[in-house]
Write a protein that binds this DNA or RNA. Structure first.
Length: 280
DNA sequence: CCCCGAACCTGTATGC
DNA sequence: TGCATACAGGTTCGGG
């Protein structure tokens, strides 16, 4: 469940399920999920701590850990990557893909499940260790159109690549970039610094609208792996205009939606609504 | 700075 | 049925 709206959905659902619970044990099924820390050291860092707030920046979710006196202990950074999932349940919920399982003080289990093993569960003392590498949140109040337009200035990269770059802007992935570019009527290969004025405004608005609408729908989920912690599927996939729709008619003009590769990712767009930028 | 390809992994869908 | 190939919501690395 991996872009900003899906992560936000997980954050909202997981927070009340683990708030104020103490970690009494940890089992690690796949060491690399910990990103270099040994299971022993990870257990030492986490056991005895209590979960507090669940936060998010971009696609990065982080769970605050405090000691009994509510003093800061650190954070658990959870990145779902392609197939990661969080669930709270009991032993009957075990799966072949349990990578990290926390036993809570009420006997329930918090599992990080991840078939493809790309996901990460990192313990860090200071959140800035991770957050400093990330760009701004696209839906925050201070990320206004002037800031966005200024950030585009002087960037010659293709707009799709730039929007996928988490150091530029944190949270968009393949689905929501394609959707936002369609709404803004901008071709994905357009050099970023050619997007100014009205078009920059359109793109800024489109990104925020797509993300907000997807959050309101609990994100997108189109196969059995993508489930929220409450076991439900999001429904924003029903609202996709171009993503995953190559060969189908454009919802605005009926032209056949095309698929090209950019950064080795499928990129879907309407060749009529999103005309290729003229050179020169 | 920018682009590309490969790597990290497993599951599913499709075609022969 | 079996086997091969392509593809998937992400990120990071090395090389040109």
């Amino acid at each position: 469940m991996p872009e900003l709206p899906e992560v936000e959905t997980v954050r909202r659902q997981i927070e009340p399920l683990i708030a104020d619970r103490e970690v009494v044990d940890v089992q690690v099924g796949w060491e690399r999920t910990l990103g270099g820390l040994s299971p022993r050291a990870f257990g030492r860092a986490v056991i005895g701590a209590r979960f507090a707030a669940a936060r998010r920046h971009g696609k990065q979710m982080y769970l605050d850990l405090v000691d009994d006196d509510r003093v800061h202990r650190g954070h658990l950074f959870v990145h779902l990557r392609m197939t990661g999932r969080l669930e709270v349940g009991d032993a009957t919920g075990a799966t072949p893909w349990d990578r990290v399982v926390f036993t809570l003080d009420d006997g329930r289990l918090l599992r990080f499940i991840d078939p493809r093993k790309f996901g990460r569960v990192l313990f860090v003392r200071e959140a800035t260790d991770i957050l400093s590498a990330l760009g701004p949140e696209p839906i925050s109040a201070d990320y206004d159109v002037d800031r966005f337009a200024a950030d585009l200035r002087g960037r010659r990269r293709r707009i799709k690549s730039l929007l996928l770059d988490q150091a530029f802007l944190a949270g968009l992935g393949n689905i929501y970039v394609d959707e936002a570019l369609f709404l803004a009527r901008i071709h994905p290969l357009t050099p970023a610094d050619r997007i100014r004025g009205q078009r920059a405004r359109r793109l800024h608005t489109a990104m925020r609208e797509v993300l907000e609408a997807a959050i309101a729908s609990d994100g997108s989920s189109f196969d059995a792996f993508y489930r929220t912690p409450e076991g439900k599927a999001g429904c924003y996939q029903d609202a996709h205009q171009v993503y995953g729709r190559s060969g189908s008619p454009c919802p605005r003009c009926e032209t056949t939606i095309r698929r090209i590769l950019i950064d080795q990712r499928s990129s879907c767009f309407c060749p009529r609504c999103q005309p290729r930028p003229r050179r020169g």
